[in-house]
Structures are given as structure tokens and as C-alpha cells.
């Protein structure tokens, strides 16, 4: 019996390792690519390390590309994501609380609508949102991107689940008996207990906003407004290796290691958050579902 059991385990481990390679190799490649020159990137082993000096040169070239466009894109991404996340929290936390712990006419209907719009992919609404933004003259302002980001039904749902399952109702009732008003109960009792869910919603909203491509693609129209996701596409369009027509702009040529570096810079904020939030993401996130 035993050898067979070991055989199962070995096969399972081998399959897991193959998939770990599938997920991890592109990440490793992305970190190594900017250490090499364009020639080295194509002709040397994909896992060869170039040099730190090349890494530095590549970094400078990407940052200084066309008057430090990369920094402008990153700044735009930060404004859109931080603004969108802040507004999303401002709306979602009280809404989740209201849905979970107060009674009002239409509460169930609002909850059902929230679930439906949460599941519907937001991209389906991007074109109509563009038309709406155009009608109310918001195009060309940061609000054309920030406001759609602020609408985050998934956050409302998470807050609803959290408040309805973790805050003891007796605690709120006691506070009311002690004379606290509805706002006081929320502000002084529910909100301090809601820190974990605030962090979780902020995480999901920020990551979704930072990585969003289609909405800003439609809402913004030049380099001064693009977030870094669109910036990456601009860079590909300037890379003669991929876009031969771009070779005319010899002064602003982008090479393959530059593209890898730009991608690395673009994902860095989210990557850092992922690594630091690892414990919560892979374990704590599964409230009530952990093995230990």
C-alpha cells in the first residue's frame, strides 16, 4: 500500500512543480530581462543575469523616456487609484453597515442589485460611461476615471458580510440605550471594529484600479492623462522591434529590456502590496475557512 501512496504524492508534487514553473518563470524572466542588453536578451539564456550596471542604464532610459513620461503615467495611475479607492471606501463602508445593521424599505432590493452589478463585468459599462461623461462635460478631467472607480459594489458586499457576521448587535443596542445616536454608534463602535475589512476593500479596489486598462483607455486622450497601463501600450508602439513603423523616431527608440523594465516598474506598487499582504491573502482572507 505504502509505495503506491508515495507514487501518488510524487506525481502530485511533479505536477505542482511544473505549474509553479508556469507561474513563476515569467516573473523571474521579467526581473532578469532589464539586466541585459537587447542583444543579450535574445542571444543569451533567458535565465542569464546581465549586469547591475545595465539594469541601472535601462532604468534611467525608461524613466527619462520623452521628458520622464513614465513618472507622469505613474503619477496619473496613483491619482486615479488612490482617489478611486478613497471614494469607494467612503461609499462602501457606511453602505455595508447600513445594509447589514439597519432596516429600511428597499434594503433587500438594494442588496440584490448590488450582487447583480458586482458579478457583471464593469467593462460592459465603459462605453456608456464615456457617453455619460461626455454629456456632463467630465471628459478630460480626472473625475472621468475616478468616479467610475468609486462605484465598487464588491466592496459594499464585503462590508455587508463583515458587519453582519462580526459585529454583535447587542453591542450596538447597548450603545443606543446609552444615548448614542445612529452616527455615533457607527463612528465610535462599528468603524473602529471594521479596520480589517477597510484594509481588504482598499486592497481589492486599489489593485483593480491600478491594473484597469479599458476605462482610462476610453476616458483619457493623451500622455498627460494616461495611467501607466496605457503608457505600456504607448511604449510598445514606440518599440521598433514590435512596431516597425516606429523606427522613424530613432531618438526615442524603446528596446526589449526597456519594455520589461517599464512593465516591472508598472507592476511594482501592486507587487509590493501583494508581497506584504501575503499572509492575509493566502491565509487570513479565508475567514472561517482556515485549516489551523
Amino acid at each position: 500500500m505504502l509505495p503506491r501512496r508515495y507514487a501518488y504524492r510524487l506525481i502530485a508534487l511533479a505536477i505542482l512543480l511544473v505549474f509553479a514553473a508556469f507561474f513563476f518563470v515569467p516573473m523571474i524572466w521579467l526581473i532578469l530581462a532589464p539586466t541585459k542588453t537587447d542583444y543579450q536578451l535574445v542571444h543569451e539564456s533567458p535565465f542569464a543575469f546581465g549586469s547591475l550596471a545595465t539594469f541601472g542604464h535601462t532604468f534611467n532610459r525608461v524613466i527619462n523616456y520623452q521628458g520622464q513620461l513614465m513618472l507622469i503615467w505613474l503619477k496619473n495611475s496613483a491619482i486615479y487609484s488612490v482617489g478611486g479607492t478613497a471614494l469607494a471606501l467612503l461609499a462602501a463602508i457606511p453602505a455595508g453597515y447600513g445594509l447589514a445593521l439597519t432596516q429600511f424599505i428597499g434594503r433587500r432590493a438594494l442588496l440584490a442589485i448590488t450582487l447583480v452589478v458586482m458579478i457583471m463585468p464593469a467593462t460592459a459599462l465603459v462605453l456608456p460611461l464615456f457617453l455619460e461623461a461626455s454629456a456632463v462635460h467630465l471628459l478630460g478631467t480626472v473625475w472621468a476615471v475616478i468616479l467610475p472607480f468609486a462605484f465598487f459594489p464588491f466592496g459594499v458586499y464585503l462590508a455587508y458580510i463583515y458587519f453582519s457576521s462580526t459585529i454583535p448587535k447587542d453591542l450596538l443596542a447597548a450603545a443606543r440605550i446609552d444615548g448614542a445616536g445612529e452616527w455615533g454608534v457607527f463612528r465610535h463602535i462599528a468603524l473602529p471594529l471594521a479596520r480589517p475589512i477597510v484594509a481588504l476593500i482598499a486592497f481589492f479596489a486599489f489593485v483593480a484600479d491600478w491594473n484597469n486598462y479599458y476605462l482610462p483607455f476610453v476616458m483619457t486622450y493623451d500622455n498627460s492623462q494616461y495611467p501607466v497601463t496605457i503608457g505600456l501600450q504607448v511604449l510598445i508602439g514606440s518599440a521598433p522591434i514590435f512596431s516597425p513603423t516606429a523606427s522613424g523616431y530613432a531618438a526615442s527608440e524603446i528596446y526589449r529590456p526597456d519594455l520589461a523594465m517599464a512593465t516591472l516598474i508598472a507592476i511594482m506598487p501592486v507587487l509590493i502590496i501583494f508581497v506584504f499582504a501575503q499572509r492575509t491573502l493566502v491565509k487570513g482572507m479565508l475567514a472561517g475557512a482556515t485549516k489551523e
Binding site: F104, L147, A150, P153, L172, R176, I177
Partner: peptide, 25 residues
């Protein structure tokens, strides 16, 4: 309804979200 809570309070808490839902959804 939870003891002592009023209906108007519920509307107050969901107000901003409902505005966003109507305007952007």
C-alpha cells in the same frame, strides 16, 4: 429592526453608494 435604530438612519448610510449606483451603474 435592531433595538432603537431608525429607518432614516439606514437611508443615510447607503445614500452615497446609492447615488453612485444610480449615476454610474
Amino acid at each position: 429592526p435592531p433595538a432603537g435604530s431608525s429607518r432614516t438612519a439606514g437611508y443615510f448610510f447607503v445614500a452615497l453608494y446609492v447615488v453612485l449606483l444610480l449615476a454610474l451603474g
